[in-house]
């Protein structure tokens, strides 16, 4: 285990001052932090809009878009890209949907492009663990879900640059 930092070490230990658990720069201004967070997200969203030529809030392509956008039903995209559902009940239905998707999957066609992933397969299997960090007693914690960038827009597929798979 010499590659972990456990075996360290005198040089770095002299940098230490007191217990590692400490607050460095005083209290955090939570309200201000929230404002900055919202601003930063907003900015990210605007940049994404410009880049992809899509209004993610109105869910419409921008007039100036360099891409052609085409709606795709949620069930046709890999699970990973579906809108995230937060509460227990919906979570259950999401898992159900995952199963349907898995069962309903057509036999894998002999696709000559090997590097095109057969996404529903793998996603369906790992769904429960998608955003969990292994931690004891997790269930006891607050029910919370990490935000995805994809939470902010519905699944869409870009069609211009992607050749269609023959089986679709």
């Amino acid at each position: 285990m010499c590659r972990t930092m456990a075996s360290h070490n005198r040089i770095l230990s002299v940098l230490k001052n007191g217990p590692a658990r400490r607050n460095l720069f005083g209290p955090v201004d939570r309200e201000q932090l929230q404002v900055e967070y919202q601003t930063a997200l907003q900015q990210d969203l605007e940049e994404a809009s410009q880049r992809w030529g899509f209004d993610f809030i109105l869910d419409k392509p921008l007039a100036s878009s360099n891409f052609q956008w085409e709606g795709v039903p949620g069930t046709k995209v890999p699970l990973l890209y579906r809108s995230c559902l937060l509460d227990e009940e919906q979570g259950a239905s999401r898992r159900a949907a995952g199963r349907i998707c898995k069962v309903g999957r057509v036999e894998p066609q002999h696709n000559d492009k090997e590097n095109i992933p057969h996404t529903p397969e793998r996603c369906a299997v790992n769904m429960h663990d998608l955003e969990k960090t292994p931690e004891r007693g997790e269930n006891a914690g607050v029910k919370r879900k990490q935000t995805n960038l994809t939470d902010f827009y519905q699944a869409k597929r870009r069609v211009v640059w992607m050749p269609r798979k023959s089986g679709e």
Binding site: A40, L41, T147
Partner: peptide, 22 residues
């Protein structure tokens, strides 16, 4: 906990997204 609870897990997760974007 290592920040002596000066930040909350929710804030950490929110800012994770901001940092990823940047």
């Amino acid at each position: 906990i290592y920040t002596d609870n000066s930040i909350r897990p929710q804030e950490l997760l929110e800012w994770e997204l901001v940092v990823l974007g940047k």
